[in-house]
Write a protein that binds this DNA or RNA. Structure first.
Lengths: 337, 337
DNA sequence: ATCCTTACCGCAAACGATTGTTGTTGATAA
DNA sequence: TTATCAACAACAATCGTTTGCGGTAAGGAT
């Protein structure tokens, strides 16, 4: 049972392939009666246009590449879920290209996206990435790009993130309002933009509240287990009454460390995190958090990339470099008073 | 800067495109001197063969479709990670098609995979899926298929799973050995093959140990929060001394329920789960588990699908219906004695 | 009777690469 | 000198679809 082509339909009713093509795309040169007839046969023969032929003809396909550092995180699967809802409904398909946080691999993946002639690329950069040089090949090929979550600052590329600064600021404010005066923090890898923003928000809030930034009580970690170690270190040497946690991964490591040190939450220490939400509500106790919704991020970035693709098809310039900041909502649980 | 084609190289050195093609694929008809010259120019012009043209010519591409129920689980991201390692290295690319556990969506995704002429399909079926009728279109198109994790039993299709029966059996045995005599269990959705196998292993072990299967203390749940509810219900009405948990999702819901009921683990109750491992070691306390390694599963299924694809290219029949069961190792933590 | 629209539809090139067939050399054997 | 055979490359068809350019017929206007 091989696929029926436009040619099969053509010989079937004795017209040329070009007529079939026009009929199927509702071209005005074809009479209505013929159109109906052709569309009927096409349906009967289960005709599906060849993606390969279209791809070759148009020079692009309906695939979107998602380049990300680690698929095994708590965040990106939700992002993918959110993207997929939009993409599927618009007839696009998602290609996953993990970099394992390697810059080299990121370059490779960009080349792959290019070779595959994807319609658009969405990227969360690796921990090693600190420039945009490798994006120019995409730009030269006029492939729409969007940077999400882990972005490069000051890049001339559209970015979508949460307002990391503001969110962190508000988290510290909240801890303050509930009585905390000695607020420690555990952050992700130091040189990333996302860490930068979040730390700055944290630090600025402390300054604005006339609290000291206790450098010994601020840590930058690389993984859940690293967070566990550092949090353990923190709590065995100091006695903060508030704890800021930058991600789900960090929360996952920090909570057991708190427990290990025999501290009661929130009586001894209040905890607040930036979290996808899922994990936060299953911690013991449940952790108050700013809900950084991966689904929404994915949804929005999919919409954006499609918009850019459509603009390009209508020759609307794609130079529009948007800097989109998403809102987050605070979700309160027992970890704060 | 548009892509250089084979034709560009041809006019550059004044030979025909066919000669370029043959030179690049090391065809004996081309003289060595010419080959070297052509390969050099190709490199200099950064020639990359057009994926679209190859796709059209060959009728297939180097994409693998992964159809799965929920990307937002703890398990599948590791599977993807494991697959990607192999696929990337072999020049294949991964397309993600989530079904949201909908049968209809699964059918759609299979059609998409077909339309895209993927080289192979790897599927974990949805909760709603209980037949293989929708796979025949793939089989008719001679596209290699592998079922993983959530499979259909007795299907004439290669499957890769852990030995769910055996693993569950061993888990109960372990609880027994550590002193448990009243072993409750929380399982996933009732009608799935995976649940079936795991429940059977659990039940058989109990029988072989001359323990009663306490039907009131066995639950089938649909989500983490459902697991929380049912576990709470269980513990407020009964006093099992051992608890079997079928998945990470279930563990995530059950542990807070245990805590809520004021039970000490493992003093009051021992807990063992089937887990990817990551989450289990961050529970409070850490949970002993059979390590169902998503990475390994992904790795193996990627290898298998590539093997099948290669076989097909060499006209080796792909009727080989393998039933592969992966080993798991027990990882002991504080949740059992 | 001739010219011009309008409505329909076919021809053929193009997208980039592969491959069976054919053709042209030059060298060797008869 | 001529037939033979490598060795080497070009030609052209093919994959499925789109699309610019013609081309034909019917009908109306002149």
């Amino acid at each position: 049972m091989k696929k029926t082509t436009i040619k099969d339909i053509a010989v079937k009713i004795g017209v040329s392939p070009s007529t079939i093509s026009r009929a199927l795309s509702d071209h005005p040169d074809i009479s209505d009666s013929l159109k109906i007839k052709i569309q009927e046969i096409a349906r009967k023969l289960k005709y599906r246009p060849s993606a390969a032929a279209l791809h070759l003809k148009r020079g692009t396909n309906k695939n979107i590449a998602l380049i990300l550092p680690q698929i095994t995180s708590f965040f990106y699967p939700s992002v993918i879920h959110g993207m997929e809802e939009i993409l599927h409904q618009q007839g696009y398909t998602l290609i996953i290209l993990p970099t394992n946080d390697l810059y080299e691999r990121e370059i490779e993946n960009i080349d792959i996206a290019l070779d595959q002639n994807v319609a658009g690329v969405i990227i969360a950069v690796s921990k090693e990435t600190n420039n945009t040089d490798h994006f120019v090949v995409l730009q030269e090929a006029a492939i729409p790009i969007i940077l999400i979550d882990k972005i490069i600052e000051n890049a001339n590329i559209t970015t979508i993130t949460i307002d990391d600064f503001k969110v962190s600021y508000q988290m510290v404010q909240h801890l303050y309002k509930t009585g905390c005066r000695n607020i420690a923090g555990i952050f992700g890898k130091a040189r990333q933009s996302i860490t930068h923003q979040r730390y700055n928000g944290y630090a600025q809030a402390l300054r604005d509240l006339n609290l000291n930034i206790l450098e010994d009580q601020v840590f930058f970690v690389n993984s859940s287990s690293d967070a566990y170690q550092k949090c353990d270190l923190l709590l065995s040497n100091y006695s903060p009454d508030g704890l800021y946690l930058m991600t789900d991964e960090i929360m996952l490591g920090a909570m057991p460390a708190i427990n290990k040190n025999g501290l009661k939450v929130p009586d001894d220490i209040s905890v607040i995190a930036i979290s996808d939400g899922y994990l936060a509500q299953y911690m013991l106790p449940r952790v108050s958090h700013m809900k950084h919704d991966g689904y929404e991020l994915g949804n929005l970035s999919a919409q954006k990339i499609i918009q850019y693709i459509n603009n390009k098809q209508h020759n609307i310039p794609i130079n529009s470099t948007e800097k989109i900041m998403m809102n987050t909502n605070i979700v309160l649980f027992e970890s704060t008073r």
